[in-house]
Design a binder for these strands. Structure first.
Lengths: 214, 214
DNA sequence: ATGATGATGGCAGTTAATGTCAGAAAAGCC
DNA sequence: GGCTTTTCTGACATTAACTGCCATCATCAT
């Protein structure tokens, strides 16, 4: 709860990331310089390059944070509850902070605006890949399996691919064709996709943990 | 068969890519400069940067070519044949050129050597992502569905994730623990993984195409 | 206070990457 | 074969991403 040393720095990087996203959305990726991002975020350019190894990765914290929140929600997933029920909870707008929604909007617009910008796509893909580790933990815990079990690893990779596919198609449909989705629709699509590619039965209620932890 | 204008340039880029891979494998990514790659490949540095938008993507043609060959094999997949049978054919060393094997070795060593080099990982991920389009076509054709159908898209993404997971685990086991795999083992693992994450029944023999094309 | 530690900014330096242009090679045409 | 036209390549200058270095400032324990 108290402010750990690295929490502060993470918060700054996230703030910088939001500024970077807005600038890039306005001007395009190439046309946005490191200096501009730094200035918008109120830090020196030198500090910017200490925080981020290159321009692309300025966006990473925004993507990471979004997945992080989702992962936290999934860690709260009671064993007795099905995927659909839990996702409905997670995605319920009533349970989302304004900040969270603003971030999602930013991300959606960003990936819909530049589907072919390679630098953008690569950080986008990278962030999903980075999320696989935590998803492995979540699935492993739910099924009382090792996090490094091959099937768990495979399941995490496939589910991540499904989540990414949903995110991309929904974003594109929303921005390009002005299509709107209700929370229920997104929950339905997302859980169908996840179930469809899951090789392990973690989507339904599972036996309570015999050891009682979690 | 005849040399199309872009075939030549593609071949050069592939050759450069192999040089780049060897240099990076030897010296590491950061320690290898564009000039070195250009010199090793016998082109000027200016031309190198015309071919590749940045240093990372010097490796892309190598990865792409490897998938391309696999994709070509999959396009030959007869409708009456199961995944296992066809993969056994594709992976049979007798059906692979020396060049093909050398490339595979290069790739395997590369991703096993630098699992945490972000630039490497991002082009690695990107190349699988780029392959999704052709996989969508393959799956779509096999099932007489539109290539852009959502389920086809999802299936391609999940299968790609499975293939990547296999590639990574096999590479790591091979290089790190000197573990060797028979062709049959790889076929078994690969097809199990693909089946496990497939939401569409494209892995088994399917009805012959009523229109007779393909 | 004071000294240690670590984060920051300023500035110079390095290197990846692009703009420009002139010469070489290749493709089209006769 | 010649000729034009276009596309490709290399040399050089230039930009912009990124790093090294050091002085300064904040934080915190003593």
């Amino acid at each position: 709860m108290s402010e750990k040393p690295n929490d502060r720095i993470d918060a700054i990087q996230l703030a910088v990331s939001r500024h970077a996203a807005r600038l890039i959305l306005d001007q395009g990726f190439a046309a946005t310089s490191g200096g501009q991002i730094a200035k918008a975020a109120g830090i020196s350019e030198r500090t910017l390059w200490r925080y981020f190894r290159n321009k692309e990765s300025c966006l990473a914290p925004l993507f990471a944070r979004s997945w992080q929140r989702f992962a936290e929600d999934l860690r709260q997933w009671p064993r007795s509850v099905s995927l659909e029920e839990h996702l409905a909870d997670c995605f319920d707008l009533k349970n989302q902070s304004a900040e969270q929604i603003a971030d999602s909007v930013l991300i959606v617009r960003l990936i819909a605006a530049f589907p072919d910008e390679p630098d953008l796509r690569s950080t986008w893909l990278m962030s999903y890949h980075d999320g696989e580790a935590s998803l492995m933990a979540i699935i492993g815990d739910r099924l009382d399996r090792s996090h490094n079990d091959f099937d768990v690893r495979l399941c995490a990779a496939a589910v991540m691919a499904a989540v990414r596919t949903i995110d991309e198609t929904v974003s594109l449909a929303a921005v390009r064709h002005r299509q709107t989705f209700t929370t229920a629709e997104v929950v339905t699509r997302m859980s169908r996709a996840i179930r469809a590619v899951s090789n392990l039965p973690f989507c339904d209620a599972v036996q309570p943990n015999p050891f009682g932890d979690t």
